[in-house]
Nucleic acid binder design. Structure first.
Lengths: 148, 148
DNA sequence: TAAAATCTGAAAATCGTTTTCATCTTACAC
DNA sequence: GTGTAAGATGAAAACGATTTTCAGATTTTA
């Protein structure tokens, strides 16, 4: 609490490194678990969950859900980017994160605050949807899990 | 499949009626289960899940997730009502969920699609922030589940 | 080096959701 | 009405993601 960021452990390093090296894909706890086990440096799932939770709390990692059956997804967020000044668009299909720099959104933020008395937090708010590349003209009519 | 919509049963009627009478709230399987049990017409959760699944398949009901810990939410959808989809504001402090019916957001949605080529999914997108009640007064600071 | 703070992971506990399966109901022909 | 096949039901077990427990291991700090 008092400025501490926790002890430096092999597990913590492994997880953090994995996150920084996989910024553009849907990372789940299993993804990480399987990878580390395969690398010969297994880490218990409980530990992975615990570290990710802390990383999310401190804003280093973002937590989101694409498919309820798959479980939570996590994504590393770069600190050097002024992410607090813009919003994000997250493609539900490819997992890509788009940094949206748009004055329109800022206006909406102000509108919501002025008219609805709600102070939006840009850091945690993510717009989910489908990006241009993943937008398929011909609807494949799959048996996909609904999510909205 | 061949035009059949299943047998007409008490359980099916109860569930459908509940959905049509609660179009504006977050309905979960437990919500329905508790209500029907209290009404003296209990329906097993497995049955509720089964019926909701069918209703979702046929487009009568929409399935979405607001909070992973709470589980799936369901909402009755009327054909003429689809354009009235609304967004949600989630207070990070007290956990309250606010239904935001605001044309400004709709405009933003259209703007993002037209100018940024991204099709926002309104039901999966949640604005996180702080509500009016939790704003200035002593922060209630709870241990809420993260979801952004 | 010792004590205190923190971390780890196997196993158990939770919790939402799905499946199993033996038993009812409904729809429909006779 | 009676018989029956397709479909529905629900208690309990199974499942899968996530959390908690707890005894033992590790990192810090003094």
């Amino acid at each position: 609490m008092s400025g501490t960021n926790g002890y430096k452990t092999r597990q913590r390093e492994s997880i953090l490194r994995y996150m920084t090296e996989h910024k553009d894909s849907h990372v789940t706890v299993n993804t990480i678990s399987d990878y580390l086990a395969q690398q010969g440096t297994p880490v218990g799932t409980a530990t992975i969950y615990r570290h990710l939770e802390k990383l999310v709390e401190q804003g280093t990692v973002r937590k989101y859900t694409v498919d309820a059956a798959t479980g939570a997804c996590f994504q590393f967020v770069e600190a050097d980017r002024k992410c607090h000044e813009h919003y994000h668009l997250k493609c539900e299909k490819c997992g890509k994160l788009i940094h949206l720099k748009c004055s329109f959104v800022k206006e909406l933020e102000e509108h919501i605050y002025a008219e609805h008395g709600f102070a939006v937090n840009p850091l945690r708010t993510v717009f989910y949807g489908v990006c241009q590349e993943c937008a398929v003209p011909a609807a494949p009519a799959q048996k996909e899990e609904q999510n909205g």
